[in-house]
Design a protein around this nucleic acid. Sequence first.
DNA 1: CATAGTTAGTTAGGCTTGCTAACCTATTGC
DNA 2: GCAATAGGTTAGCAAGCCTAACTAACTATG
Lengths: 162, 162
Amino acid sequence: MTVRDKGPSPTSAAPALVADRLHSAAIHILRSLRRTDEATGLSPARLSALSVIVFGGPLSLADLAAAEQVRPPTMSKIVGALEEEGLVKRSPDPNDGRAIRLSATATGVRVLERGRRMRVESLTARLQTLDRHEVAALDHAVEIMERVGGAETGRREKGEGV
Amino acid sequence: MTVRDKGPSPTSAAPALVADRLHSAAIHILRSLRRTDEATGLSPARLSALSVIVFGGPLSLADLAAAEQVRPPTMSKIVGALEEEGLVKRSPDPNDGRAIRLSATATGVRVLERGRRMRVESLTARLQTLDRHEVAALDHAVEIMERVGGAETGRREKGEGV
DNA sequence: CATAGTTAGTTAGGCTTGCTAACCTATTGC
DNA sequence: GCAATAGGTTAGCAAGCCTAACTAACTATG
């Protein structure tokens, strides 16, 4: 309200308000996607982690945790679940006896593709109600969001290929 | 924006890809905000619910649950926590003996303001590294996201004033 | 080369936020 | 007046986060 009504002139967009609404919008988008994720059998956290493994090649648990911005124990649990489902494999790191190398199984790759497709489907369906320019605006904004969202750690990871 | 430099031309922004990256960006932004929320003493779900109560006037639990896109039992628990913290009050609905009217206490309003400020602060700080046009692009995109994110229920609620 | 310190990962335990199922009470409709 | 419906709550479960504490392995140093 206050400032918007859709055509935000550059000067009217107060960062605090944008931040506020961005947060709110992000919550709602994720909440609605959670249901889609459920249908795929892969929860958001697992799907996201799996995608990093698939596209980020073999990597250590610590690196994966950092990429996903969670703590190692959290990622340990997620990886454990993925491994149990046969989507991911833990291998010893030849150079470091403490570390592990995480890689996706063939099934993992396949499931990721399917899950990713389903996950994105509902959002895509809704995006398709938008006109080209709106999609383009979103696309551009997402690029900015990725910078802003990852700025904290200065890390740029997965998002790309997911 | 839209077509700027890295900005893909409108025709190249495939909805599926945008959806994909939007999802990823949303995850990361929320994850980074969760930490800020912790600092305020209010978890994201509670803060969000409280904001709806504060700005949405007295309302029933079912309405609040719908606004927040969660099931009644989930909201019942969240409201219970907010009530225990003295931020929200349950009153009987004069017109319907089954229903309750949720309203914020003075403390609730105050805490919301503080929490909201802190929550948005880190995002804002990061947004401030952007130039005016980028902020404007985000602002515009957020408006689209709100439509897209809320499209499922067709409901438009809190996001506005939070 | 032995030992202290650090680092990778896991386990244990706790909290929040979701859900469904089952239940109670109040309202509504016949 | 009684069955059906609707609003809330309780109980019980799972996912995702976290910190604390532990083990095993690497590194550096006297």
